[in-house]
């Protein structure tokens, strides 16, 4: 019988004979659960992680056009090219503005709506359904709806502006307004999400806290500001992360506004730039380099979140 004495993490010796440990290992939950998570893990892992790895590799080549990629000479030329391109920096800036403005506005609006619906509103279920309704729609569809809303001649938005005595604005045609207009449309689509998350958070707070505040003589507004909302930090963090992920997918919305690879002027973000360089101009390596930087941006957003979750043991 082979006897090994490996030490466990606390430095103690495992004195069980090897055969026994093998038997235990095979019977153990790890081996028996492997088929369950192993297959999905393999599929997901190769799609996501092998994909990312390959993408990074391609970004180091000069791969473009219809020829096949050559991996013999790897360098950071494509990244240098991106950093030297004003289009890239504009797209990066737009991505950042979109990410931050969209997320913050959605959170604020979502919180306001959640507090509103938390005030014992009649039919609050139906109202909630309506507020979240836009989320069920594809970006492709909401882009069409907002094209119409923003139409300079007959769109509802400009109609409202004209009613106020101002002249109509071509929101999507004017680079000064286009990004703001896109953000507004996206807020319309996703603030309902923030509301649902906040509402769940609000409802998990026992009403006794509200009643205790009332008995202490605090006003409703004060109870929300001082007692209730500070407890919604976890909701805010998770809603913010998911909203940022939505924002990173805004590619589809922008593409659908024009139906071509170039979005309205002033709204080019890294995602649209990447797809355009790669799939319109077949500059695969350059597109891959931009994609890698987009990925780093996304990871930069979620890494603190995952760390936060891990620290609070909720992973």
């Amino acid at each position: 019988m082979v006897t090994q004495n490996p030490t466990d993490h606390a430095g103690r010796t495992d004195e069980r004979p090897f055969s026994e440990r093998l038997q235990h290992f095979v019977n153990g939950t790890f081996v028996r659960s492997l088929p369950f998570w192993g297959i999905p893990f393999l599929l997901m892992g190769s799609a996501v992680y092998a994909g990312i790895g390959w993408n990074v590799l391609i970004s180091l080549t000069d791969y473009e056009g219809l020829a096949s990629a050559s991996y013999s000479q790897l360098d950071f030329e494509m990244y240098a090219r991106a950093f030297g391109s004003s289009t890239f920096w504009t797209a990066a800036q737009n991505t950042f503005v979109l990410l931050v403005a969209f997320t913050v506005i959605c959170l604020v609006l979502g919180l306001a709506l959640a507090v509103l619906l938390d005030r014992n509103i009649r039919y609050s279920e139906s109202v909630q359904t309506i507020y979240v309704l836009p989320m069920a729609l594809s970006f492709v569809i909401t882009a069409q709806l907002w094209l119409w809303m923003y139409n300079p001649d007959s769109g509802l938005v400009n109609l409202a502006i004209k009613t106020l005595g101002l002249s109509s604005i071509d929101f999507l045609g004017n680079p000064k307004f286009a990004l703001a207009a896109v953000i507004f449309a996206l807020v319309w689509q996703f603030s309902g999400y923030a509301m649902v998350v906040y509402l769940a958070g609000l409802r998990s707070i026992p009403t006794s806290q509200f009643e205790a505040g009332k008995i202490d003589g605090a006003s409703t507004a004060r109870i929300y500001l001082r007692i209730i909302i500070p407890q919604l930090r976890a909701s805010s963090v998770s809603a913010a992360v998911v909203l940022m992920v939505f924002a990173l997918k805004a590619f589809t919305f922008l593409y659908s506004l024009t139906g071509v690879f170039r979005p309205p002027n002033g709204t080019d973000i890294l995602a649209t730039l990447m797809v355009r360089r790669a799939f319109k101009y077949t500059e695969w390596a350059y597109g891959a380099a931009i994609a890698t930087m987009l990925l780093l941006l996304a990871l930069g957003v979620i890494a603190p979140y995952l760390y936060y979750q891990h620290k609070h043991g909720s992973l």
Binding site: F30, F41, I52, V275, G287, A291, A298, L299, V301, L306
Partner: peptide, 29 residues
């Protein structure tokens, strides 16, 4: 149901996978 130290690592890989923008795998795909 696994009671195993690597579980958290595997789970983290799934979790990160949620947040990967599709652009990052589009060319290889």
């Amino acid at each position: 149901m696994v009671d195993w130290r690597g579980q958290l690592a595997v789970l983290s890989l799934f979790l990160v996978g949620v947040f990967v923008p599709y652009q990052a795998v589009l060319v290889p795909l």
